[in-house]
Design a protein around this nucleic acid. Structure first.
Length: 358
DNA sequence: AAACCGTGGTC
DNA sequence: TGACCAAGGTT
């Protein structure tokens, strides 16, 4: 071959043949053998899994998916759930706007669509929390629409197959167009899952297993470039360091003082310890109740998407009659640290340590 | 359009 | 150990 123009285009048939032999088993997935016998996946479960999988690994999602579908088997069950129960169940999975939009979407399907999921990309993308990726995933996997899914895997595979040098996110639209040229009308759902499986298991970010790739003879980066270096990405901003104070208050009957955070913004709608603002400057004390505070020796360290946080944890024991200025007491038997977002659980975990200073 | 929004695993 | 990474969406 002289140059990239001599390299033949990859075919969906080749990838689907690989997928038929190597598809991974997942709780929300109908295996290709069953799918070819006409077994269709439940759109509710496809949607649920795809929302959970946004920016999240399969390993992290599995238990949450099983928990949610066991507790809320149908979209109408989820639509009828209490907000606080859904947020508590989502705790630890991150990107909590997904949980808020999950509920909004379930209620929209229940109220505006008779409890039946819309079946086209054009209708799905109108729903809360469903963007271009999720609409294409649900439309193709659950309804056999020839929609093109473009996630991080697909971007990586396409950038290598076509040896795209333009960095992300500038190249996003170009990669989307390239991906669309390969999308088949036959078995589009299996094809979508196949490309993502390929990216997850063969065409990995580091050390891609090009020798095992069903598209190895169609990959311009493998034949003429350096696949492991693709896709190029524009540099990201450095994360600043912020600090804050969290107040963990115990009442003598064992209740904990917690507050539900505002609907929007960081950890929106989640339960947490009352505290100061989180800023790059020294935090101003903001005790939620009058008490004698003890400062824990160790700080809770946590990294969010766009900043590092160091949280000073103050604890106190208060009498029954003391009224808080913020938050509400949660009875000991109703308190479960696994219902807290991770940074709040980290702060709580420090209180079980023995050493503290006055 | 760029910023915001979590977490755990990996090297 | 710190930076990168993952089946993105919203504002």
């Amino acid at each position: 071959m002289r140059d990239e123009s001599d390299v033949s285009l990859p075919t969906a048939e080749t990838l689907l043949d690989w997928y038929d032999r190597h598809a991974r088993t997942m709780p929300w997935r109908v295996p290709p053998a069953q799918r070819k016998n006409g077994v269709m996946p439940d759109p509710y479960r496809v949607w649920m899994s795809e929302v959970m999988l946004q920016q999240t690994t399969v390993a992290a999602v599995r238990d949450y998916f099983n928990k949610f579908t066991a507790r809320w088997p149908r979209v109408t069950d989820l639509a009828a759930a209490e907000d606080a129960d859904v947020m508590a169940a989502w705790a630890g999975l991150g990107y909590y706007a997904r949980a808020r939009n999950l509920l909004k979407c379930a209620r929209a399907v229940a109220n505006d669509h008779g409890g039946i999921f819309p079946q086209t990309y054009a209708e799905l993308i109108k729903l809360p929390g469903i963007g271009p990726y999720t609409a294409a995933a649900v439309a193709s996997i659950a309804f056999d629409e020839a929609a093109t899914v473009v996630d991080g895997n697909v971007e990586r595979v396409m950038s290598r197959i076509f040896n795209v040098q333009n960095p992300l996110p500038d190249s996003k639209s170009e990669l989307t167009e390239l991906a669309a040229t390969l999308t088949p009308t036959d078995r589009p759902g299996d094809y979508a899952q196949a490309v993502m499986d390929l990216g997850a298991t063969i065409c990995t970010p580091r050390n891609p297993a090009c020798g095992l790739c069903p598209w190895r003879d169609n990959c311009r980066a493998r034949l003429f470039g350096t696949p492991a270096e693709l896709p190029h990405k524009k540099p990201k901003k450095a994360k600043p360091k912020r600090r804050g104070i969290a107040y963990i208050t115990r009442r003598v009957d064992g209740a904990y003082l917690l507050e539900t955070r505002p609907e929007s913004g960081l950890l929106g709608g989640m339960l947490g310890w009352p505290g100061s603002e989180w800023a790059e400057t020294d935090p101003l004390p903001a005790p939620p109740i009058r008490a004698e505070w003890k400062t824990l020796n160790e700080e809770a360290k946590h990294t969010f998407t766009h900043f590092h946080l160091s949280l000073t944890v103050l604890t106190a024991l208060v009498p029954m009659e003391r009224q808080p200025e913020r938050g509400e007491f949660v009875a000991e038997e109703d308190f479960d640290p696994s219902n807290l977002p991770t940074v709040m659980r980290k702060a709580f975990d420090l209180t079980s340590g023995k050493s503290r200073k006055s």
